[in-house]
């Protein structure tokens, strides 16, 4: 038997059928399936809830990677450690060297109060800085064109042997790459969730179509077009996927909104959540879920209709 043609079920026609109001009540030809319906709604909601978190994770890690990358690339430190009688001379030598190094926008010696503040979390307040052999710290900001760190290191070695240039590369790179990987993981999770949703809706639609094989045969027998039958199923599953996903998205957004604020978390977290226009991004989730429901059910309907003449 030749493979039946189902040209009438092209995406555009199906979409038109789906958006047209069902005045004659043709959708009622599909029997209500309580359990499958609830299962589809629940699964779509759960997937959307997870998708909100995956989206928030991807956005937050993206921000984190960007911040670490940009902030830490442009600020560096020169640490000067020398006997007390030589320290001022070496600091002056470093400052002189930095002043004449192209690509350095700004260099300043951190005042004692600032050093004290940096050490406060470990040693507590009122630390007698002057009594401790604490190195002097010089903060430098790189200009846009950048500078040759290796050349500067060699120069400092010659002019101020106690000076060490720390460009933060050692610990910045792993952090930035970890944040980038987390972002990829978040995006991959979104992809996985979309695929799992597609598989789940396809299975549910296939089960519903298989259970309604007799209904489809009766409908074809009384002259129903493929588009009419497919629309009845596709409309139902698209609606369930969209409604379930909308519910899950709202719950997910509420959960994100209820997370502790950045300040409350101690300033370390960049905030797992959305900012500004970012709050509109989760609105895409029900739309994508509906699209997945549409495509998955259409595919299942095509396969089923091919078996019925």
């Amino acid at each position: 038997m030749r493979k039946p043609e189902l040209k009438s079920l092209d995406l555009a026609t199906l979409w038109r059928g789906l958006t047209r109001p069902d005045a004659a009540g043709a959708d009622r030809v599909v029997p209500p399936t309580g359990f499958t319906a609830q299962l589809t709604l629940f699964s779509a909601a759960a997937m959307a809830f997870l998708a909100v978190f995956a989206m928030a994770l991807a956005l937050a890690t993206g921000r984190l990677a960007e911040r670490w990358s940009s902030e830490l690339t442009q600020t560096m430190t020169v640490r000067v450690q020398a006997p007390p009688d030589q320290i001022d001379r070496q600091v002056n030598a470093v400052m002189a060297a930095l002043d004449t190094t192209p690509g350095i926008a700004e260099a300043r010696v951190l005042p004692d109060e600032q050093v004290e503040k940096l050490l406060e979390p470990w040693f507590g307040p009122d630390l007698p800085i002057e009594a401790l052999p604490i190195p002097r710290l010089i903060e430098l900001v790189e200009a846009d064109e950048g500078f040759d760190a290796e050349a500067l290191r060699l120069r400092l070695q010659g002019e101020a042997p106690g000076a060490v240039l720390d460009d933060h590369t050692r610990w910045r790179q792993p952090l930035v790459s970890a944040a980038n990987r987390l972002r990829i993981l978040g995006l991959f999770s979104l992809l996985l969730i979309a695929s799992a949703s597609g598989a789940m809706i396809t299975l549910a639609a296939k089960a519903a179509l298989a259970a309604n094989g007799q209904v489809i045969r009766v409908l074809r027998l009384v002259g129903a077009r493929d588009i009419t039958i497919a629309t009845a199923f596709v409309r139902r599953f698209t609606r369930r996927a969209a409604l379930g996903a909308a519910g899950g998205t709202v719950l997910g957004m509420l959960a994100i909104w209820a997370l502790p604020s950045v300040d409350g978390a101690g300033g370390f977290l960049t905030g797992l959540g959305f900012r500004g226009w970012g709050w509109l991004l989760p609105v895409l989730i029900p739309v994508v879920a509906a699209a997945i429901g549409f495509v998955a059910t259409r595919w299942a309907a095509l396969r089923m209709l091919r078996e019925v003449r």
Partner: peptide
């Protein structure tokens, strides 16, 4: 064969419903 979830009257009107015609 009929659609067992729909009353007899609606089953009889089924060809009209699936062709989008008012009953």
């Amino acid at each position: 064969q009929f659609l067992d979830h729909m009353p007899v009257a609606e089953n009889i009107a089924l060809p009209l419903m699936i062709s989008g015609q008012a009953v």
